[in-house]
């Protein structure tokens, strides 16, 4: 099971997010990635936490910043990849895999088809932000709303090599990932990456039927109490 880290990155800065709506600045991307490289992290997930107000200019600006990134660790990137022109821009990035979220709620699968053609199936990762309360719902960033489970186009999941299940309610906290999502969603955990509230050993899921392919710890390298180093020490 891989142990990775999530970095939220937008407009040139990284953020720590709590409960999917409170953003606390963490600093520059290169500094954080360099820390994670030193930890010998298994992989890094960089997500632009954009909603319905994302613009082409903002996307382009972040891509230019990401091109400068230097890292010796595997990196996945996503957030706001919503059209084919944007897909082509990704080939200039030093990343192996790309993350798609709002397209999973669309009827049309053209974007995923082209992405698979350009980068290979092993490079396609789905992201499903979810919350269980008051009832199970998924976040569609393109319309900036939580929507019912049946709005998700499950056929699109076949394009994804892995699916990140992102617990919005536990995001930024060190424990409590809602593993019941696996039962409710009827997904194979071996294809999933758990993210949100998994920074404690009791949430490592190792040797359980819920053991995922990987876990992501929210990037908190500047905050000792939730740090990845702390997680490793407990293992």
């Amino acid at each position: 099971m891989r142990t990775g880290s999530v970095i939220l990155f937008k407009n040139g800065y990284c953020y720590q997010s709590y409960g999917w709506n409170l953003f606390r600045p963490l600093g520059g991307l290169q500094n954080i990635v360099s820390h994670l490289d030193k930890y010998l992290i298994d992989d890094i997930t960089i997500i632009r936490p954009v909603r319905d107000n994302d613009s082409s200019a903002d996307f382009l600006s972040d891509i230019e910043e990401l091109k400068k990134l230097k890292s010796s660790s595997p990196i996945s990137f996503g957030g706001g990849i919503r059209n084919i022109d944007q897909l082509h821009l990704l080939s200039g990035l030093p990343f192996e895999r790309f993350i798609f979220s709002s397209i999973l709620f669309n009827e049309n699968n053209k974007l995923l088809e082209v992405a698979t053609k350009l980068y290979g199936k092993q490079a396609i990762v789905g992201l499903i932000p979810f919350k269980l309360k008051p009832k199970l719902s998924m976040f569609n960033s393109e319309i900036n709303k939580f929507v019912p489970l049946d709005k998700l186009n499950r056929n699109h999941l076949d394009f994804c090599d892995e699916i990140i299940l992102y617990d919005c309610e536990r995001e930024g906290f060190h424990s409590g990932f809602s593993k019941e999502i696996i039962d409710r969603f009827k997904l194979d955990p071996k294809s999933c990456v758990f993210s949100g509230g998994v920074a404690e050993l009791k949430n490592s899921f190792k040797n359980t039927s819920y053991a995922p392919k990987a876990i992501n710890i929210e990037n908190s390298v500047l905050h000792r109490e939730y740090s990845i180093l702390n997680y490793y020490e407990k293992l």
């Binding site: 891989r2 298994d42 092993q122 090599d161 892995e162 071996k190 294809s191 392919k213």
Partner: peptide, 8 residues
């Protein structure tokens, strides 16, 4: 294998 060989 069902999915890719992604990891260390």
């Amino acid at each position: 294998i069902k999915n890719s060989n992604t990891g260390w």
